[in-house]
């Protein structure tokens, strides 16, 4: 019955929205729980305000910048750790430490050294780096040993090994880590902004909504973050898949 997920998942989302609407109607106090319709109406209003786009753009540029930096650095570090055991051992305690430090600790520490404007970029980078690194390292370790033997027999050039063996083999891990990583990036980036309060960031808007008890704004910004997170994840996955497929198909003779 539930095999057609394209039909059932949106229906289930609608079901939960109805639960939210009913709960809000039952409580009857917008200050406690805004209804989804009121939040959507506020979001619709905000979409027509130029300040919405500048605020969303400010946070998106830094949060996605931090995530893309962690993709680049995580890939390079995973490749080095895969190739050189010493690099893996050297990085192991560092990655464990980076992974277990709370966002709040990083944020407060960064506020001592950095301006609040670049805070979400650094925090996002730090929070997603271990996830990217570990996923890609696992992908590299799972590379088909028989293909690597073949590459060694035919003396295939390192760049060709990367393009035709390592990239296709690690692609599923990369695509999967984008799903997890974009979510972590937005959660940690916005949390850092709520603590650091950079001028014109989504986190600062959420904080303002909290101190003024403007729950409509709080929910509207939260929905905006969820939508940005969803569409950016889809976009990055799509672009990476397309790029990898084009790269690995290669030219003919």
């Amino acid at each position: 019955m539930f095999r057609n997920r394209r039909l059932w998942i949106p229906l289930c989302a609608l079901f939960w929205l109805c639960v939210w609407q009913l709960a809000s109607m039952r409580i009857g106090e917008e200050i406690l729980l805004v209804s989804p319709l009121a939040a959507a109406a506020r979001l619709w209003e905000m979409l027509r305000e130029p300040s919405f786009w500048s605020t969303a753009g400010f946070s998106m540029a830094r949060i996605m910048g931090g995530f893309l930096l962690s993709l680049a650095a995580g890939s390079a570090l995973a490749a080095l750790a895969y190739r050189f055991g010493a690099v893996y051992v050297l990085l192991a305690p560092l990655i464990s430490a980076v992974k277990s430090v709370p966002v709040a600790s990083y944020t407060i520490l960064c506020l001592i050294f950095l301006s609040t404007r670049s805070l979400s970029l650094i925090i996002t980078f730090l929070m997603t780096l271990p996830v990217v690194y570990e996923a890609l390292l696992e992908g590299l370790r799972q590379t088909d040993a028989k293909l690597l033997e073949m590459a060694s027999v035919f003396r295939i050039a390192p760049l060709h090994r990367l393009r035709y063996i390592y990239i296709p083999q690690t692609l599923p891990y990369l695509v999967s880590v984008i799903g997890v990583g974009v979510g972590i990036a937005w959660k940690s980036g916005v949390a850092a902004e709520v603590i650091g309060l950079p001028q014109g960031a989504i986190g600062s808007r959420l904080y303002e909504a909290k101190i003024t008890l403007d729950m409509r704004n709080l929910f509207a910004w939260t929905i905006a973050v969820m939508l940005l997170c969803y569409f950016l994840e889809k976009l990055i996955r799509f672009l990476i898949r397309r790029a990898a497929r084009a790269l690995e198909r290669g030219r003919a003779l």
Binding site: A157, Y164, P168, R245, E248, G250, A252
Partner: peptide, 14 residues
């Protein structure tokens, strides 16, 4: 032991 996503030509060329 071919590179599955690559073309026949690319497999031979590498």
């Amino acid at each position: 032991r071919l590179c599955e996503r690559a073309s026949v030509g690319a497999n031979i060329r590498i």
